[in-house]
């Protein structure tokens, strides 16, 4: 029973409520860093990594520190600062102890502090009153959804490079129309998760 709820939460976050394509979160990196498959996966792995860490840190802060003291309204400031500090710490730690991992994720980490997908996922976890495990699963699902969208779109981007649209459509507009079609495809997942696991 418990396990089934977790699967539903994860699948909804990854597919039905895909962060990029359905909820419009984290579109800047989605459009900017998806030119090549390699950078797309690197960025997505960094997102998943930071999302999980940020959730693991901000959930206890909210439940044990902010809410009992009645200062829940400070959560925006606290979360932003926590995420910024966390990203710095992770960067320093990886550089020192795991140079191999750092060479993959290093360039993407500074971008995380101002990534709206990260802040959104920790805020949503609190707003939806998820438990600690549910929060982690939700973050993992959101991150995997981001990875999926990035990988698919990097494939599309490579074909867009060779396309020859009218001059005014080149660049951002044609990319946006492609995203629209991809987003439409993801609407097909609506209802699937509930029917499969509900």
């Amino acid at each position: 029973m418990e396990f089934r709820t977790l699967i539903i939460i994860m699948m909804s976050a990854a597919l039905v409520n895909n962060f990029v394509l359905i909820q419009f979160l984290g579109i800047c990196p989605f459009l900017g860093v998806s030119k090549q498959l390699k950078s797309a996966t690197g960025m997505s792995i960094a997102v998943i990594f930071v999302m999980l860490l940020a959730t693991a840190v901000t959930w206890p802060i909210t439940i044990f520190l902010l809410q009992p003291n009645g200062i829940g309204f400070l959560q925006t400031i606290v979360f932003v600062l926590t995420i910024a500090a966390l990203v710095q710490l992770v960067e320093i730690t990886l550089k020192r102890f795991m140079p191999a991992l750092y060479s993959v994720l290093g360039v993407y980490l500074p971008l995380m502090a101002t990534n709206c997908a990260i802040l959104a996922v920790v805020l949503l976890n609190i707003n939806n009153e998820h438990s600690f495990v549910e929060s982690l699963v939700n973050s993992l699902g959101a991150g995997l959804g981001f990875l999926l969208a990035m990988v698919i779109f990097s494939g599309i981007q490579e074909h867009l490079e060779n396309a020859d649209p009218p001059a005014c459509m080149r660049g951002l507009p044609i990319a946006l129309f492609s995203v629209a079609i991809l987003s439409l495809a993801f609407f097909g997942f609506t209802g699937v998760v509930e029917n499969l696991f509900g």
Binding site: G171, P173, L176
Partner: peptide, 30 residues
Amino acid sequence: APGGFIAFGILVAIANKVSNGRAAKLKESG
């Protein structure tokens, strides 16, 4: 959601057309 992307795409395309591609140059690449 798809409609949001389409509407925004149309507006950016118009902005490109009106500014003769100057706008497109500003936001090239990543």
